[in-house]
């Protein structure tokens, strides 16, 4: 099957001013570095990793919200860079994003109807068709029909996230990047939104990249999970394998860091916990980027970057020791 999304060597460097006021230097901040990733139609690829490891940047690169420094993304087998303007506009309709912050992502001066319909306006659809489409999306997203003439501030966080979802899905996309869609919500409201996203995926045949720092949420909704560390994917496997038999020392540490679900299973003092802080993406460590915190690191880890290997079919890992 042709992957819906196929990225090869995808790289993003942000030029960042460093040095003092007198000696201006720009240093590339290596947000995403040579990532290969393919996502099959209908699957939900979970993407986890700690703050600043490049999850949002990777998500944005995949749907070309930002240009890549290097590398290629094929959408349904087609390189978007080769498309003419009209074809690119159509392709963009097929890829959407739901953002983390349900407050900041919505324009406070626009009505809910205008917010949800905006992607269609850009696509040049008629007013009548837009009204009908908004009505349908309100219903699908679990919002009351009278929401359309109201403003974002009249809604709770969970409802605003529903508005963001309705807006993302109104163009009938095939691929949706969900960038931490529940992180900013109250705990009791998160489950509603996770369930809504799962229902819409089934109903509309969507493919997701689901970004989160909460491993349990990602495990719940994903078919496969990729783990990122400092701009690199270090491990990727189907979700059950990844949790039952994690191979990369970083994945193991990440899983060991998640608090227990029950007081009888307290995990205090587990040996796999990591020491030290996350290094800066301005100066990622040479060799394996994880070696400064890795309990298994050996000499080669400090000089040579580990290649991605596939010790079992479908289980990818970049590690000299465990690969």
């Amino acid at each position: 099957m042709t992957p819906l999304i196929q990225a090869t060597g995808l790289t993003k460097h942000f030029p960042v001013r460093t040095g003092g006021i007198l000696r201006r230097v720009t240093t590339p901040l290596r947000a995403v570095e040579a990532v290969d990733l393919s996502i099959q139609p209908g699957e939900t690829m979970g993407l986890v990793g700690e703050s600043g490891c490049g999850k949002s940047t990777l998500g944005r690169l995949l749907i070309r919200l930002i240009p890549a420094t290097a590398g290629q993304v094929l959408f349904d087998g087609v390189d978007l860079l080769t498309l003419d303007a009209a074809a690119l506009r159509r392709a963009r309709q097929a890829m959407q994003i739901v953002f983390q912050d349900p407050y900041g992502a919505l324009n406070p001066r626009m009505t809910v109807e205008d917010i949800i319909a905006e992607p269609l306006v850009i696509a040049g659809s008629t007013t009548i068709r837009r009204r009908a489409a908004v009505g349908e999306m309100l219903d699908k997203a679990g919002l009351p029909a009278n929401a359309r003439d109201r403003y974002p501030h009249e809604f709770s966080g969970g409802q605003r996230q529903r508005i963001g979802i309705a807006r993302a899905l109104i163009t009938r996309p095939r691929f949706v990047v969900c960038d931490e869609p529940v992180s900013a919500l109250d705990v009791s409201v998160q489950a509603q939104i996770v369930n809504l996203l799962a229902d819409l995926r089934a109903e509309l045949g969507l493919t997701y990249l689901f970004i989160a720092h909460d491993l349990a949420v990602v495990k719940h909704i994903s078919t496969r999970v990729a783990v990122m560390y400092l701009g690199k994917i270090v491990e990727l496997a189907d979700r059950d394998t990844l949790h039952a038999r994690p191979r990369h020392p970083y994945t193991r540490a990440l899983i060991a860091s998640v608090p227990a679900g029950h007081p009888s299973r307290r995990r205090r003092g587990e040996t796999r916990r990591l020491a030290g802080d996350i290094p800066s993406a301005l100066h990622p460590p040479p060799g394996c980027r994880f070696h400064t915190r890795c309990p298994l690191a050996i000499d080669i880890c400090r000089v040579t970057e580990p290649a991605v290997t596939e010790p079992e079919p479908g289980h990818l890992i970049a590690c000299h020791v465990e690969g």
Binding site: S156, V187, V189, A216, V217, K219, G261
Partner: peptide
């Protein structure tokens, strides 16, 4: 009870989360 069952944990395997309806 709602709070305990609507939060996914690593050791549980439900296909649907038991959501609490409404908002605070």
């Amino acid at each position: 009870s709602g709070l305990l069952s609507c939060v996914p944990t690593l050791d549980q395997r439900e296909d649907r989360l038991a959501a609490i309806p409404g908002t605070l």
